[in-house]
Design a binder for these strands. Structure first.
Length: 585
RNA sequence: CGGGAUGUAGCGCAGUUUGGUAGCGCGCUUGGUUCGGGACCAAGAGGCCGCGGGUUCAAAGCCCGCCAUCCCGACCA
């Protein structure tokens, strides 16, 4: 491909709208252009990267036994009413009416459609398991789209759905996808971790997120270097390092703390450390109001509380409700005399003589003690993990990473098959609901995440496997006849070998070409100039290394091919290693 | 939806305080000279100053309303 004919508008400066690096570079490198908030055009260069990611996904999904389908983006409301999500899904679901005033929506995900597709068609246990996937745009009317392609409203996604006859089968499907995902991200040339995650509104008992490691990632991962346990911070379990306190219990004492609501204010006023104080937080849930207690220097993890009480819904109580439930104002809540169930973080249970709110304005209690002064409904791990914490499984200290969620695999169980009445006949001729799983990969986000992970001040550094082109052929002066001849011949030879070449035939000064080459980040740059021709050579330079190397013109094409194959082989071997590890888990 | 900010040429910005009919850099066009890290000279093209209304002899600027975009919080691939 000749660059002079290629639609690749690059920019020296990054548009003001772009804050994160992947967004800036994708705009500057002419990969995408914004059409509206969270909605992007893909230009030829960006599309090539996206298609490569999709193709890797396709190959690995097929390899794992899944079959590709293509489902409509516009979906009728009836299906969503059947699953109950017409009401349950919030405003992210873009609803509209057609000319017949028929209610429809743009698909933010396709569970309903896929269940409708298979029910009545898959009738026998003999046909199971089945795993169907598609690569399609989703639309979610996010309140606030941001970070460019990282969180758009319309975005590319691969979604897969498995149907199994029994639990062991469903487990096997899940493991199959875990392995496939590991291969996919390894083949994309990305550093990633699979971590345990909270399931969110899609439901199910547990799930794994696939995280591309990048300092700019929104999520924090706790990874145990010893036993391999890894989890999103939203989920990560912690082993308590603290020892039980053995001080004798002191007399409960009410102390005046005028206007001191926050942990900092109370501690400063009483000249005590936050670890001596225990916060009492009041929540509303579908299981009724509950209280949760964590040390003053800790943060409650609401996901853990929600899991503990098995609630579908959990939110902080309003100041009014706190007044009603505790008889005291916000900021002065405490366990003593409280009539709602109290859940205690395991660390709190180790404390003696701690400070709590008195459930009346401007008073706290000194020397509060569990059992003597109040009872706990349950004691559990309820707090957010912090640096220095230890793995709950093996006791090693956690490592922390920042990550970008690019994939998520869920066990759905009967969540959709049951309300939508999707059944098959088992070996006993008995009607059963499908046991489902669903498995997503953000394709457009994966491209952005790759850039977040692999860039330098000059621009993008593509992993070879998803690079839009493999070779950037750069003649210093394409108007020079001799240079031009060598360049054209080499380009033809490279393309004949099946390599993807972008030839910079523009009438630009060398500096511009170098800058653009670095910006768009094609892995191998081959330079043709007077100096190299004087030695019957061209210059090879890899985007991810500083080293430059002269290669004889006569051997250049084969050398390029070998170099590229070697790199792809390295990725492939790494993929196999990672897949082997994944299968052991 | 709450808080903050910004809309002026394709991109980055100045001009708004103190109203007088729009400017800089990059990019683009033409000609010439250059050619190993965003070259140089010369000549050009390009703007409902986000939209609507108001004030005024006169509005990019002042007033009112709206819209869009970006950033910070609740969602998620």
């Amino acid at each position: 491909m000749k660059l002079s004919r290629y639609y690749l508008p690059t920019y020296r400066e990054s548009p003001a709208e772009a804050e994160v690096i992947s967004h800036q570079l994708m705009l500057r490198a002419g990969m995408v252009k914004k059409l509206a908030a969270g909605i992007y055009n893909w230009l030829p260069f960006g599309l090539r990267a996206l298609r490569k990611v999709e193709e890797i996904i396709r190959e690995e999904m097929n390899r794992a036994g899944a079959q590709e389908v293509f489902l409509p983006m516009v979906q009728p409301s009836e299906l969503w009413k059947e699953s109950g999500r017409w009401e349950a899904y919030g405003k992210e679901l873009l609803r509209f009416q057609d000319r017949h005033e028929h209610e429809s929506c743009l698909g933010p995900t396709h569970e309903e459609v896929i269940v409708d597709l298979v029910r009545g068609q898959l009738r026998s246990w003999r046909q199971l398991p089945v795993n169907l996937y598609q690569i399609q745009d989703k639309f979610r009317d996010e309140i606030r789209p941001r970070f460019g392609l990282m969180r758009g409203r319309e975005f590319g996604m691969k979604d897969a759905y498995s149907f199994d006859a029994d639990e062991p089968g469903a487990e096997k499907s899940y493991q199959g996808m875990y392995a496939a995902y590991s291969r996919i991200f390894a083949r994309c040339g990305l550093e990633f971790r699979a971590v345990e995650a909270v399931t969110g509104p899609i439901g199910g008992k547990f799930s794994h997120e696939f995280m591309v490691l990048a300092d700019t990632g929104e999520d924090t991962l706790a990874v145990c270097p010893k036993c391999g346990y890894a989890a999103n911070l939203e989920k990560a379990e912690v082993k308590t390092a603290a020892k039980p306190e053995t001080d004798p219990e002191q007399v409960l004492e009410k102390v005046h703390t005028p206007g001191r609501r926050t942990v900092e204010e109370v501690c400063a006023f009483l000249k005590l450390a936050p670890a001596n104080l225990v916060k009492t937080l009041i929540f509303e849930s579908d299981k009724g109001p509950v209280a949760a207690m964590v040390r003053g220097d800790r943060e409650l993890n609401p996901n853990k509380l929600q899991g503990l009480i098995n609630a579908d819904r959990l939110e902080m109580a309003t100041p009014e409700r706190i007044q009603e439930l505790t008889k005291g104002p916000l900021g002065f809540s405490g366990p003593v005399g409280l009539k709602i169930p109290i859940y205690l973080d395991q660390e709190v249970a180790l404390l003696k003589n701690f400070i709590t709110g008195a459930n009346e304005p401007d008073y706290h209690l000194l020397n509060t003690n569990l059992t003597r002064d109040f009872q706990a409904a349950k004691i559990a791990d309820l707090r957010v993990v912090v640096p220095g914490d230890f793995c709950n499984r093996c006791g090693s200290e956690y490592h922390f990473h920042k990550g970008i969620e690019v994939g998520h695999i869920f066990k759905l169980g009967l969540k959709y098959s049951k309300p939508m009445n999707a059944t098959f006949l088992d070996q006993n001729g008995k009607e059963q609901f499908f046991i489902m799983g669903c498995y997503g990969i953000g394709t457009s986000r994966t491209v952005a995440a790759s850039i977040e992970q692999n860039h330098d001040p000059s621009g993008i550094i593509w992993p070879l496997s998803i690079a839009p082109f493999q070779i950037y052929l750069l003649p210093i002066n394409y108007k020079d006849e001799r240079l031009r001849k060598v360049t054209d011949d080499l380009a033809a030879e490279l393309e004949k070998l099946g390599l993807e070449v972008l030839l910079d035939d523009r009438e630009e000064s060398p500096g511009v070409k170098f800058k653009d080459a670095d910006l768009i980040g094609i892995p191998l740059r081959i330079l043709v100039g007077d100096k190299t021709l004087a030695k019957d050579s061209v210059e090879f330079k890899l985007r991810n290394q500083d080293k430059k190397e002269l290669v004889l013109i006569s051997k250049a094409a084969m050398a390029a091919k070998e170099l590229i194959l070697a790199q792809l082989e390295a990725i492939s071997q790494k993929t196999d290693r990672i897949a082997t590890q994944a299968s052991k888990l």
